[in-house]
Write a protein that binds this DNA or RNA. Structure first.
Lengths: 301, 301
DNA sequence: GAAATAGTGTCTCTCAGACAATATGCA
DNA sequence: TGCATATTGTCTGAGAGACACTATTTC
C-alpha cells in the first residue's frame, strides 16, 4: 500500500506537482585554489633550484572587483554535480587539468558577494610542477601564478568568563613578476565552557577580490596539515624526482627546514628507486625516484 | 578615478542594475548529524554503566520519503548565514543547543533529492550527554535517538593500469527501542597515476531518507579521526566526570578498547582534578575531573 | 572477604629530533 | 683541489603498546 501524506497525495503525485520555484534560493559558486611548486628557470649547475609555492589567480574582467584578482571559479549549472562544476570552471578559465582536487569548505555568510546572496563551495587543487606553465585558456586571458607567502603577525589570548578568546592575524602576500597583492586575515577561536567556535575574516586587502584571501589562507593551512600525514605532496611532483627535490617541496609547504636523515626514513615507503641518476650537476648525482602508489598497504582506508 | 567595465558602468551602477534572477539556482539545505553518548538509566552499583553512541533522527511527516527517518535540517533562508541556518533548524526541530558544531561536507550531486536540485551542506554536532534526553521541539514530534553501529563488511583492491581501485562496504545500523534502520554504503578510492578520487554512495537502505545514510557514516568517520588529535570528546562529557567514564567515551567512538595507563598519560594535560570523589559505588571511589580549556598552551592555533 | 574498579609502575619498541661523517661528480 | 650536494650512521628522548600490581570502597 502506498503512503499518502496529509493532502492524500502519493509520493509520485507529490513529486509531479512539486513547485521548485516556491522558495527563494541563493546562487552557488565553486572556487578553486590551485597550487603548484615552481623551480626558478635559471639553470644552475651548482645549487639546488629555488622552489616556491604558487597559486593561480585570474584578473576580473567585469564588476564587481573589476581589475582585481580572484580564484578561478563560477556558478554551478543546474544539471551539473558541484565537483564537475569545479573541474569545468578550472578547465574553461585556465585550461589546466589538475592532479588533485578536494573539497575544502563552503562559505555561506549573507554578504560575501555584493551582487546577491552567493554561497561558495571552495576546492583545493594541486598541479604537477612540470605542467604549471601551460598557458591560460581563452576564457580568461589574464591568469597569473602568484608566489604565496604567509606570515603570522600577532597572536593574542584574552580570558573571558568561563573560557577564552584567541585571535591570530595572518598576513598573506601574493607576488608575481609585476603585481604584489596582500591581505590580512584574522582568525578567531572562541572557547566558552564546553563550546568552541572558529571564525576567519579578511581585515584588510589590496587587489584581491571578494573574500578569496581567506579562502587561499585556509587552503594553505589545509595543505600544510595534510602534507605530513598523507601523500598529498606527491601530487606536486613530476613523474621522476630526486629525494632532495621532494624534501624541498615539503619544506616549502611547511615553511621550515627538515632534517635529511629523518625525512628519508619517513618517506622511504612512499617511493621507489628507478636506478637512474640525475646528470650534469656539479656534485654527486642523486638517484631519481618515483611515487609508490601501494605504500599504504591497506592499513588506511 | 572609478573603474568602468566594458559597458562603461561603474561598480555602483553595475550593482544597482544587477539582476539576481538571471541564472537558474539550486536549493540549498543544511543537515546536521548530532551525536551524543548515553549511559543506560538503570543504576548499577557494581559495574560501570554501558555507553553507546547515538544520533538524532526525525521522522518525515511529508513526501518524499514519508515516514522514513532523516537528519534534522532544512532550507537556508535568503538572509541567513548557513551556519546560523544549521543552528536554527536544529533548535526548531529538536529544541537542542549543541555544545559543538562543525561544517562537515557539502553534497552536490544533481539527483540527490527527487524534488529538485538540492545542494546540502552537512554539519557534525555533539551534545553533552547529560542534556541528551531533553524532549524534541514542537516542529517535529517524531525525533528519536538511534544507537549507531557501523561495520566494515568487505574490502576489495583491484589493480588497474597505472594505479588501483579500492572499495569498501560499510554497514550502518541505527537502532532505537522500536525501530531498526540500516544501510550499506560503498566507499571507493580510485588511484590513477598521480590522481586520487574518492566516492561514497548508498548501495541499499531501509527506513533512511535521502542520502543521509552516507552523511551519517561520513560524520562517524570524521568524529573517529578527530577524537585522537583534538579535544572533541570533551564536548560529549558532562561538567564533571571520572577518567574511566572519559575513557569509555573514547572507546565507544573508536570502537576498540584502550589501555588505561597510556590513556591517562595521553589526556592528563586536558583535565584538572576537582578533589571531589564519586560516591555510592561498590569499589574504590574515582576522582571527578573537569576539562581544562588551557591544555593546549598556544602550541596549536 | 569477594567483587569491582581506581590508580601506578615498568619494560619494550618505534620513531622523531639533532647532528656528524663519508662519498662523489664537476668547475 | 675544493665546492656542493648525496647518502648513511648514530645518539637521545618522548611516547605508544602491553602487562602487572596495589588501593579502596560496598555488599
Amino acid at each position: 500500500m502506498e503512503l499518502r501524506d496529509h493532502q492524500e497525495l502519493t509520493e509520485q503525485e507529490f513529486l509531479t506537482s512539486y513547485d521548485a520555484g516556491q522558495f527563494e534560493r541563493p546562487s552557488v559558486t565553486v572556487d578553486t585554489a590551485i597550487f603548484t611548486i615552481t623551480s626558478d628557470d635559471e639553470v644552475n649547475k651548482r645549487n639546488l633550484s629555488n622552489q616556491e609555492l604558487q597559486v593561480l589567480l585570474i584578473k576580473r574582467g567585469g564588476h564587481p572587483y573589476l581589475g582585481q584578482w580572484a580564484l578561478p571559479g563560477g556558478f554551478v549549472n543546474p544539471k551539473e554535480d558541484v565537483d564537475h562544476a569545479a573541474v569545468r570552471e578550472l578547465k574553461e578559465e585556465t585550461n589546466l587539468d589538475c592532479s588533485y582536487m578536494e573539497q575544502l569548505y563552503t562559505w555561506g555568510e549573507v554578504n560575501r558577494d555584493p551582487r546577491t546572496r552567493v554561497i561558495s563551495i571552495s576546492y583545493l587543487a594541486l598541479l604537477d610542477s612540470t605542467k604549471f606553465n601551460i598557458q591560460a585558456g581563452d576564457d580568461a586571458s589574464d591568469a597569473k601564478w602568484y608566489t604565496v607567502k604567509d606570515t603570522v603577525l600577532k597572536k593574542e589570548k584574552t580570558l573571558s568568563e568561563d573560557g577564552f578568546i584567541q585571535q591570530k592575524w595572518v598576513q598573506l602576500e601574493l607576488i608575481s613578476d609585476e603585481v604584489r597583492l596582500s591581505a590580512i586575515i584574522k582568525i578567531i577561536k572562541i572557547v566558552k565552557g564546553t563550546t568552541i567556535e572558529y571564525r576567519r575574516e579578511v581585515v584588510e586587502q589590496t587587489g584581491i577580490a571578494f573574500d578569496h584571501a581567506r579562502i587561499i589562507q585556509y587552503s594553505i593551512e589545509r595543505l600544510r596539515n595534510k602534507v605530513d600525514y598523507t601523500d598529498i605532496a606527491f601530487r606536486l611532483m613530476p613523474h621522476r624526482f630526486t629525494l632532495s627535490e621532494l624534501q624541498k617541496v615539503y619544506e616549502v609547504i611547511l615553511g621550515k627546514n627538515l632534517y635529511k636523515a629523518q625525512f628519508r626514513l619517513k618517506i622511504e615507503k612512499m617511493v621507489n628507486g628507478t636506478g637512474e641518476f640525475q646528470r650534469g650537476k656539479a656534485h654527486k648525482p642523486a638517484e631519481l625516484f618515483r611515487f609508490n602508489p601501494n605504500w599504504d598497504e591497506d592499513d588506511n582506508f
